[in-house]
Write a protein that binds this DNA or RNA. Structure first.
Lengths: 155, 155
DNA sequence: ATAATAATAGTCAATATTAGTCAAAGAATT
DNA sequence: AATTCTTTGACTAATATTGACTATTATTAT
């Protein structure tokens, strides 16, 4: 415990609060001041230690009264399918593969018919077409991964 | 929810009244005085939080006995809601407006909580960010319109 | 009636107050 | 030595707050 760096200390500080609460809402500069680090280090801690993979979602607001809120989410038990799909996607995804994935989700009862059509609408060719098929495949991958990550937990 | 900014407090104050009433009629300077802000901040709150997309119409009158009236709007049916939202989007859509739209869909029972989160995941900043904020707004608009169109006959 | 004045609300740009990004430098680990 | 992780700070972005100026409507005076 003695040889922790400051990012670890900040991480533990926040997780201690999260042990008793579903969420923690902070003012970035306040926490930075508390640990005597620059404010952007708080972002570093969040980006490296409070990711969705770890079961946290983060939202924030700038301007007066701004904040960062970290929320603990309950990761579902049976998410092997999702994890392997996310892994398999990588950074590009063809239309054909995306349809296969949606079908897999449906077959595994991870989404229903309505959700199928919402997801297909989101990655619809016309919606994400930018006259650059590489870019379209990248976007399709990003959007699909984002949705799959969302399906990993419930609130 | 103690440490919100003043604009949020004003928003909640008005929405609390609107929870029990179809409309609320205020004197701008009175509300400004109540929260100790300049009168034009009331306009800021209205312009950012009581837009037509959020299901409110606002009308006002100047001069003696002047007022601002905020009214909850009743769209006739689901199709109307979807059409007016699609119309309002145009070809670009900010993150803030997109969240308002999703909220409106939910308030009108057009989507459920899970669908809210799937849609938000689809238009998540990280998913559709291409280092070009104009492009991001265009993509967000495209995807949202695509989903709204799907919801028109998926029901 | 008309003109002047008072009493409102609206607009817009400047400023303040937050958080986010990114790349470089430094430290720790392999 | 190379690689990865941490720390820092300059710059950017988003949101809120403020106030000077403008526009509209009502009231009062002539």
């Amino acid at each position: 415990m003695a040889d922790e760096n400051i990012s670890d200390l900040i991480e533990h500080y926040l997780k201690e609060i999260l042990a008793d609460n579903e969420q923690v809402k902070i003012r970035r500069s306040e926490i930075a001041g508390l640990f005597d680090v620059v404010p952007s280090q708080i972002n570093y801690v969040i980006n490296t230690r409070f990711t969705i993979q770890n079961g946290y979602i983060v939202e924030s607001k700038r301007g007066g009264g701004g904040y960062i809120r970290i929320e603990k989410v309950h990761l579902l038990d049976d998410i092997d399918v999702l994890n392997s799909l996310i892994e398999a996607i990588g950074n590009k995804l063809s239309k054909r593969d995306s349809e296969t994935i949606v079908q897999t989700l449906y077959n595994n009862d991870l989404i229903n018919r309505r959700e199928v059509s919402i997801i297909l609408a989101a990655i619809d060719k016309d919606a994400i077409d930018l006259n650059n098929s590489d870019l379209t495949d990248i976007l399709r991958a990003n959007i699909m991964v984002s949705i799959l990550n969302r399906l990993r937990y419930e609130r």
